[in-house]
Design a protein around this nucleic acid. Structure first.
Lengths: 113, 113
DNA sequence: CCTTAACATTGACGGTTGTCGATATAAGAG
DNA sequence: CTCTTATATCGACAACCGTCAATGTTAAGG
């Protein structure tokens, strides 16, 4: 599944309940929401935000999540592809950070007020 | 999958990135998001909001969605179970309405500001 | 009653998803 | 160069999901 970065999704249109959403935009927004709609990925976002310097490597997440390293890397890739996280490699470690405004963008599409 | 109504999910905790989310809350929030993470269901929400009196019956949705009647009923049930829509039957028709504040509740959990 | 209309439910099918073990890649240490 | 460590990728498998055709349910009209 090819994912549109969140900023592209949110740039397109107004809130879901304020104007009728097009078929294409519905597909894109659904993809962005699907990337969030998993317990492990929500916890990853929360843990990255809570970690010092607001970034974390795979090794910081594996044990508290109770998941294998390949599984954590898999979830991180989905979040990066969707535009919620960035990845920067330093040495053998890969550090993940929140993309500022990404969550707010999708939240703004859901709000009715 | 048994679903917690959105209001119960949003009553539990603060924004995802402001405080670490618990495993249980992550499961519940993921379920609420999963109910939204489908193009047909996003369009249903948008179409119900846009319809006159902000309510619509199954027959209003089937043709514009391009889906069969059982499929539309299936999606509506998921949205009702998740707490986004209410169902009221009048005669042979079933009318669906948005639950006020439901979308805002889940949006508030995603926002970072 | 009987028919018709609107909707819900069931059962089935192909496609997707989350998880893991095994393996590949990349970079620092010695 | 070799070994170790951190991470990514691959292949497989069970579970889940969206869709439809067929059938069940409920209510209005004759």
């Amino acid at each position: 599944m090819e994912l549109l970065p969140v900023r592209d999704v949110t740039a397109c249109c107004g809130p879901l309940t304020r104007e009728a959403i097009s078929d294409e935009n519905a597909v894109n927004l659904a993809s962005s929401l699907k990337a969030l709609a998993d317990p492990a990925r929500l916890r990853i976002i929360s843990m990255v935000a809570a970690h010092e310097d607001a970034e974390a490597c795979v090794c910081d997440l594996t044990e508290p999540l109770g998941l294998g390293q390949p599984t954590v890397s898999h979830h991180l890739k989905i979040l990066v592809d969707a535009g919620y996280l960035t990845r920067s490699k330093r040495g053998t470690w890969a550090y993940y950070k929140l993309v500022p405004g990404a969550l707010d963008g999708v939240a703004r599409l859901l709000v009715t007020v």
